[in-house]
Design a binder for these strands. Structure first.
Lengths: 250, 250
DNA sequence: GTAGGGGTTGCCGTAACGTCAACTTCAAAC
DNA sequence: GTTTGAAGTTGACGTTACGGCAACCCCTAC
C-alpha cells in the first residue's frame, strides 16, 4: 500500500513541504516516484520517518539524525545521545547565566530610577570595552566540535558512551578510601576524564578548570555526577584543577 | 578623533565584518564615510556600540536591540528585559524537558542491550504517529509574539514591567488571609496575571493550566515567584486552573 | 468546459554574521 | 618611481530547517 504525500503529512504531523525537504536532502526518499513526479511512501518510509521525528524532537540536527539512522547501532545512538545531553546541559547553563545577568541589569536600571536617556547605560560605562576579556571558551568550541561527531572510531564511541560513568565510579571509590586528589591514581582517572571530554571539545587549562567549577555550581550537573553524593563533584573539581595546573598548557 | 574600522574592532572585540553588517542594517552607522568608502567612527558611535553589545550579550536579537536603543527610556528597557527573562526561563525549561526525554531514551536503549538494527527504536513503535498530539503550545507561540514587542503602548509596557510582581504580591496577601482560590478577589488577580501573560502570548485553556503547573514543577520559576515561600506557587497554580476552567475557551 | 483539489518544481526569505574573491587605497621601503 | 604589504572596500554565497509564494500540471466531478 502506498501513501501520498498529503496522507503521510497528516498521519505524521509534519507538512508536505517538510517531506519534500527531507527528500531533497536525501533524508527520506519516497518508495517510488511516479512518472508525473508524485511521491509515494510505503510502510518502510513511515517507520523511518518516525525515527527521524523522534530524534529531531530530541533536538538533534538533521545532519546528526541522518548519521544516527545510517549507523543504526544502538551503541552509536547512545553515544550520540549522551553527547547531545552534554550539549543540552551546557546550553541550559548558559541560559541560566544569562538570566542572572539580565536580572542584575534590571536591578541596575531600577536603582537608577527614572534615568535620563543619556544615562540609561551609565552603570556600565565605567568598564568600557572589557569585551575583549569576555569569556567565550564554552559554546563555540563545543558547537564546532559538535559537528565532527562523524569521524568517531568504534573505540572512541565506546569511550563517549561509558567514559564519564567509569571515571565517576572510579573517583567515588578513591574518594571513599580518602585518597588525595593529587595522588597519581586520581590523576590518572582525571586524565581519562580529560580524554573523554576531548572527544567533544578541547579545553584549555582555564576552560578545564572552569568546567570543574561549573560542575559544582550548577545543580543539574551535580545531580548527574554525584548520584546522591553531593561532595563527589567537589572532589572532581579539585582533582581537575590539579590536573589542569600540572598537565595542561596555559 | 576618528577611529578606523579595525581600531574599533580591536577595541570592542567584534570583527570588522560585524561592524560592516551593523552598518548595512542601519544599527550602527559610522560618523562619516570617506570618499573612498572607508568608515570612520567617533566617540558617539563607540558608546552606541557598547550599548549594542551589552544588549546583544544579554541574548536579545538585533531587531530588539535596535528598538530598545531607539526608545532609550529605562522604562521600556526594563520591560523588554523582563520579557526577555521570561523567554530565557521558558527556553531553559524546554531544554530541561529535552534532557529528561533524552535520558529516558538512553535508558530505553540500554535496557534493550545490544539490539538488532531493526529494533533500535522498538521502544517507540507502539505509539506511532502520536506526533499529532505533540504538545507545542509553548515555544512557537511565544517565539512569534516575541517579535511584536514593538507595538506596545505606554500602559502595556507598564503592565509588562510590574504586572507579575503586583499579582504575586496581591496573591501572597490573600493567601495569608486564607482566601480560597475560587474567591472573586483571587480570580480578579489571576485575570490580571492572564492579561500580563497575554502581552507575550495568548494561552489557550490547556496552555494556561500547563503554565501554572510549570511554575510548580520548575524550581527556576518557583524561586522567581515564591520569593522564599514555596507554597505560593501552588496557590497560584490552583487559582490559574480555576480561572482557566471558568473563563477560558477550550 | 471548467472549477476544484491535489500534486510538482523552482526561488526567495529567515539571523547574524563567516568566508572567500576581486579590487582599491595608502604609506613605507627599496 | 615602483613594489609591496597592510587595511580597506563591495559583492555574493553559505549556514538551519523549512515557510511561503508563483507558475504550472493532472485528474475528477459537475
Amino acid at each position: 500500500m502506498a501513501w501520498s504525500i498529503a496522507e503521510v503529512a497528516r498521519a505524521s504531523g509534519v507538512t508536505a513541504r517538510t517531506l519534500r525537504h527531507y527528500h531533497a536532502i536525501g533524508l527520506l526518499v519516497p518508495a517510488r516516484t511516479a512518472p508525473n513526479g508524485r511521491r509515494y511512501y510505503e510502510q518502510e518510509q513511515l517507520l523511518r520517518l518516525q525515527q527521524i521525528l523522534l530524534l529531531r524532537d530530541l533536538g538533534l540536527s538533521l545532519d546528526v539524525v541522518a548519521e544516527v539512522i545510517a549507523h543504526r547501532s544502538s551503541h552509536d545512538t547512545i553515544a550520540v545521545l549522551a553527547r547531545h545531553k552534554e550539549w543540552l546541559l551546557r546550553e541550559q547553563l548558559r541560559l541560566a547565566q544569562l538570566v542572572r545577568t539580565v536580572d542584575s541589569t534590571i536591578e541596575n536600571l531600577r536603582k537608577g530610577g527614572e534615568m535620563s536617556p543619556e544615562k540609561v547605560f551609565e552603570g556600565f560605562e565605567h568598564n568600557p570595552y572589557e569585551a575583549e576579556a569576555r569569556e567565550r571558551w564554552g559554546d563555540e568550541a563545543v558547537d564546532a566540535s559538535y559537528r565532527r561527531i562523524q569521524g568517531w572510531s568504534e573505540e572512541e564511541a565506546e569511550k563517549a558512551r561509558t567514559g564519564y560513568t567509569r571515571v565517576h565510579e572510579g573517583l567515588a571509590a578513591l574518594k571513599a578510601e580518602g585518597t588525595a586528589v593529587t595522588e597519581l591514581s586520581v590523576q590518572e582517572l582525571i586524565q581519562q576524564h580529560y580524554e573523554v571530554t576531548s572527544l567533544f571539545w578541547t579545553p584549555t587549562r582555564e576552560a578545564y578548570k572552569g568546567l570543574g567549577q561549573m560542575y559544582v555550581d550548577d545543580e543539574r550537573f551535580r545531580q548527574n555526577i554525584g548520584d546522591g553524593d553531593d561532595s563527589l563533584v567537589e572532589y572532581l573539581r579539585d582533582a581537575m584543577t590539579v590536573y589542569a595546573d600540572n598537565r595542561l598548557d596555559a
